[in-house]
């Protein structure tokens, strides 16, 4: 089914999304990949030493989430490292990178309020469990369609870690950015069901 959603992606939104849905996202999404995630963890580790665990922020979450460079509550994070923008364009080619490299970090961020991940490829059971636990969602964008996807990105701003080059954290404004729900908030996994559906005996 085709659906249009706007950010922030709340639990009310994810509840209505099912594995296999074709979804167009509009609004703000954040970009981070390997090196940025590694820094997020370092920031969190450091902050953890300073906060008493039960301290909460306005969203009723552990206050730890506030030390990250962008508002994590109900955020969508796009695993991506763009090619450089030509003059007059917001961004270069901008397709998804392999999500499994973020598997180590994703559950912690989901537990702190992140709601959506956009990438490509399989996830571990630990990530799937964290998706269900937090009513989150994992979307896949089409890998290798970076030119096409860049057309849905209207604006791109650097948030932080500019020294990481293509791995910096960005804030994007997107319009009808096309993705497919791969793992929904009930843990249904399109990668498994769809592959079984089209598998043939040889």
């Amino acid at each position: 089914m085709d659906k249009h959603i706007a950010t922030p992606i709340t639990a009310e939104v994810t509840k209505e999304l099912h594995a296999g849905d074709y979804v167009y996202i509009s609004g703000t999404i954040y970009v981070a990949r390997d090196a940025a995630h590694k820094r997020f963890m370092e920031v969190l580790d450091k902050a953890e030493e300073q906060f008493v665990p039960e301290q909460q922020n306005e969203a009723g979450r552990n206050k730890l989430a506030d030390v990250l460079p962008f508002p994590l509550e109900n955020a969508a994070v796009y695993y991506m490292g763009p090619s450089p923008a030509r003059e007059g364009r917001p961004i270069g080619s901008a397709g998804p990178t392999t999500a499994s490299r973020m598997d180590k970090y994703a559950p912690r961020l989901l537990d702190l309020g992140q709601k959506a991940m956009i990438g490509k490829g399989k996830r571990t059971q630990a990530v799937i469990d964290a998706i269900v636990r937090n009513q989150a969602v994992y979307f896949a964008a089409v890998g290798g369609a970076g030119a096409l996807l860049s057309k849905c990105i209207k604006k791109s701003d650097l948030v932080c870690y500019g020294d990481l080059g293509a791995e910096a954290v960005l804030k994007l404004e997107v319009e009808d950015f096309p993705v497919v729900v791969v793992i929904d908030c009930e843990g249904n996994n399109l990668y498994e069901t769809a592959v079984k559906k089209y598998a043939q005996e040889t």
Binding site: P82, R89, G146
Partner: peptide, 29 residues
């Protein structure tokens, strides 16, 4: 597969945009 077909058509569209607008086919160059 209908979704598969849709993706394959998008890949062709992607190639056209890449060539016409000089945007790399994939960001991982």
């Amino acid at each position: 597969a209908p979704l598969g077909k849709k993706i394959l058509c998008q890949l062709q569209e992607n190639l056209i945009i890449a060539g016409e607008d000089m945007i790399p086919i994939c960001q991982d160059t």
